[in-house]
Design a binder for these strands. Structure first.
Length: 460
RNA sequence: UCCCCAGUAGCUCAGUAGGUAGAGCAAGUGGCUGUUAACCACUUUGUCCGCGGUUCGAGUCCGUGCUGGGGAGCCA
């Protein structure tokens, strides 16, 4: 007898004999002459109801089944006599595969997200977290589909990197030196004795690699884990997270923004279509305004606003900000919040920032003061995408590096790309977890990644 | 790293002006029932986060540490 997953059984149009269901008991109720068992196998949000008649040979054992136990049921799929479900299974045989003692931490009631974080190894067995991780999986698939349909190639950029100059923030050092007795030199680790013969770290971005491949394969993207050793303690930051980084040659900032906007819309509509049931859970129990918000994002164009105009809007807003706004500052969370949640009430793409607050690789505009940068800000999350048109002119790039005190020697291969057949190109990074937060309405990044890594927390 | 808040039964929480601890759910027993977060009755459960202090007496006040949450910064 072949096992059939519950999502298929519940979609059945006809009764079926001889079906086999494997899963975990969510709850059990006794009635006169039989027991109702609700089983979930992770294939969908819904459980299937099993009717276990008291004449089953192991009925005593069945009555002791507790929430969390693994079971294997064979029987027939029949129309339900009760309300609340269209199909149920009349069990011919029930095998207890793995009993869960009463110490099983998940009860058939709501638990707080904080508590569930302390049992991150068991939380995917709840409705909400099962739904989050099915959606996460579906989104990953959709990302590949989106890019593949548009002729992009998927690049596996390295996780271990020797460029300590990837730009974005503190990095995790990788070493095979004996920590208790390391090779030392000049009062520090002797990196020349280390595995790679130099200091290496976990990547903070695949961008530099992606640029090289964009200048060969045209349109490429990376989708992989990223590591930041920042001591960030917020609901939006994790030390290990996933990022999607497309990079396109012969593409300017405006086309870059188009792609970012198109990608976000595509992913939302994909999930609304393919994960309807799971999404309803979030709309009903996590954020009552979720569907409205997502439909609004689908139906209206994102605002495109030059940094200078954003500053003007903020200055004339009559809102007293903790951080006063002047041209040249990096916008604070409260400013971004005001723009997306109060002023425009929709996603905003800010672009053309002052060069002084952006990295060296962003393309210098004709005004010599701003760079072709763009950030996509969404209500509730803040920055979800950060990108730019890259500086493709060797002399300008070298001058910018000089201004910022970066050594050309460390970037020799990066600069080579501008030396040999350089071409305009653009790209961005999108935080995968932040995207999931936006789509599910979940407000803490620790609840959309299987085993979150944050400062001082790596228990699982 | 900084600011604010919280930490009471397995879980969610209440605990009034400091007088020595309670509810719901879970678990156990019995009953009822094509039930569906089933229902009804009864029963069990606590170093009130740790340490120190004030007090005749501290879950309640003070100090300190730890843990968790929210906000800020850094950013995706």
């Amino acid at each position: 007898m072949n096992r059939i997953k519950i999502n298929r059984l519940l979609r059945s149009k006809i009764p079926m004999n001889q079906v086999l269901v494997n899963g975990w008991v969510r709850t059990r109720r006794d009635s006169k002459g039989f027991s109702f068992i609700e089983v979930n196998d992770g294939s969908c949000l819904k459980n299937i109801q099993i009717i276990a008649a008291s004449n089953l040979p192991n009925y005593d054992e069945i009555q002791r089944l507790t929430t969390g136990s693994a079971v294997s049921i064979s029987g027939s799929l029949v129309p339900s006599q009760g309300k609340g479900q269209s199909w149920e299974i009349t069990a011919a045989r029930i095998l207890v595969i793995g009993q869960a003692p009463e110490t099983f931490p998940l009860q058939k009631k709501r638990h707080s997200d904080e508590y569930l974080r302390t049992i991150a190894h068991l939380r995917p067995r709840t409705n909400k977290y099962g739904a989050v991780f099915r959606i996460r999986s579906e989104l990953s698939y959709a990302i590949h589909t989106f890019f593949r349909d548009r002729g992009f190639r998927y690049i596996h950029s390295p996780i271990i990197t020797g460029s300590d100059c990837e730009g974005a923030g503190e990095m995790f050092r990788v070493t095979t030196l004996d920590i208790k007795n390391p090779a030392l030199k000049d009062r520090g680790l002797d990196a020349s004795q280390d595995f790679f013969g130099k200091e290496v770290s976990l990547t903070v971005s695949g961008q530099l690699s992606a640029e090289m491949f964009a200048l060969a394969l045209g349109d490429v993207y990376t989708f992989g884990p990223t590591f930041r050793a920042e001591n960030s303690n917020t609901r939006r930051h994790a030390a290990e997270f996933w990022m999607i980084e497309p990079e396109m040659t012969f593409c300017d900032l405006s086309e870059n923004m188009n792609l970012g906007e198109e990608l976000i819309r595509y992913l939302i509509s994909h999930v609304l279509r393919e994960c309807r049931e799971d999404m309803e859970l979030f709309g009903n129990f996590v954020d009552k305004t979720l569907m409205e918000t997502l439909n609004h994002i689908l139906s209206s164009d994102f605002v495109r606003l030059p940094y200078a105009e954003a500053v003007e809007i903020l200055k004339t807003s009559k809102v007293s900000f903790d951080y006063p706004v002047t041209y040249g500052i990096d916008l604070q969370s409260e400013h971004e919040k005001y723009l997306t949640e109060t002023h425009f009430k929709k996603p905003v793409i800010l672009h053309d920032y002052p060069k002084t607050i952006k990295p060296f690789y962003m393309r210098l505009n004709a005004d010599q003061q701003t760079v072709a940068a763009m950030d996509i800000l969404v209500p509730g999350i803040g920055e979800i995408v950060g990108g730019s048109q890259r500086e493709e002119r060797l002399n300008v790039l070298e001058a910018r590096m000089g201004e910022m005190g970066l050594l050309k020697e460390n970037y020799w291969w990066y600069l080579d790309s501008r030396r040999y057949g350089s071409a305009p190109h653009s790209g961005f990074g999108m935080g995968f977890e932040r995207l999931i937060m936006m789509i599910t309405g979940i407000t803490n990044i620790r609840d959309v990644i299987p085993f979150p890594r944050t400062p001082g927390n790596i228990d699982f």
